[in-house]
Design a binder for these strands. Sequence first.
RNA 1: CGGGAUGUAGCGCAGCCCGGUAGCGCGCUUCGUUCGGGACGAAGAGGCCGCAAGUUCGAAUCUUGUCAUCCCGACCA
Length: 377
Amino acid sequence: MEEELIVRPTSETIIWDTYRNWIKSYRDLPILCNQWANVVRWEMRTRLFLRTAEFLWQEGHTAHATMEEAEIEAKKMLGVYTEFAEKWLAIPVYQGVKSANERFAGALNTYCIEAMMQDGKALQAGTSHFLGQNFAKAFDVKFLNKENKLEYVWATSWGVSTRLMGALIMSHSDDDGLVLPPKIAPIQVVIVPIYKTDEEREKVNSRCLEIKAQLEAKGLRVKYDDRDTQKPGFKFHEWELKGVPVRLAVGPRDVENGTVELARRDTMTKESVAFAGIDAHVVELMDVIQSNLYQKALTYRNEHTFDVNTWDEFKAQVEKGGFVHAFWDGTTETELKIKEETKATLRFIPLDVKEEEGVDVYSGKPAKMRVYFAKAY
RNA sequence: CGGGAUGUAGCGCAGCCCGGUAGCGCGCUUCGUUCGGGACGAAGAGGCCGCAAGUUCGAAUCUUGUCAUCCCGACCA
């Protein structure tokens, strides 16, 4: 091949090989490279969307002159991911730090956001690593600082992947299909006309077009399903399956009465609303649905997070699913034993963990904090 | 990689044990009646039975090989 093809599990080696050539002075710092790339992993067992042998992800790599600056960057990106998950995908996440055992190889700290799926299993939704000077040393990336001294750079890397699509699906969907938060729904509103005769169709059609124009003027993404080949009931189910947040149905009676039938995907409720002011009503509803989905997922997550104090409780709860919040003595040994006996992994140490006195739920040794365990994807 | 299973019409499956030249549901086509929550009736179209050998008068069915897919088993997005 003329072009070099690189198959990789992550791009650190490519990036750092390049950084060595790019970074010479403190004036070259900080530096940030962001890319979307396909990466491959050897997976014993794959899982659609959540664990695939090849996946598309976004990865960022930064290098800094100081440790502080790199730490701030790593946490900043965790914040960006948190905001995206919660505000856009409506998926509540816990922010945490991985234990030494779960840490990314080569990182000093691995920050993560962890979500709870509807089946009670945890899912890591994104990570941000504080790499310290490890990669700089491994790839010999040094710079001259203001004092004219040679120093290794401090680094971070962070990423999210198409796994987020799996998280989205598993967080909100129900037996009727996909449920999409308005902010990311490709179609936010679908309009379905109802008619029997050509005459009715004519009337209903112009009303629907009117509504569509009004909604689009407000910046909404609207689909007018005027297919004459499918009947209304069929269309209702089809758009529900695809997760469209709001459906408007307009029939002869509505045109007559100046109303529109409005159905919400998140609550599966229907109501008759006035045609006048429908645009403002729907715009407002987008926010209502967005926050309702988040709230629902948050309630679910909270109801599936349990404080546990004994080993028996621990085992029983892990079996049932959810996050288990328990004292940990801080050793890898205990962490591995717990995993061996329950298949639960230490998901994270909360970012805002508070020190408190306790005894480890497994070893009975003194513990200084509670951490989160769960079975995970 | 280890264990288990499955490949038959566009999709989901039955038939295989007890060989006789393939059937059901959905979907598709036509006509009529329907049309505010996945319509109904009637008539149709559609299949080298994963692939290759073998046994047999005859193979979707038995034998062997081969390919593919799925599920289960300790992971680092």
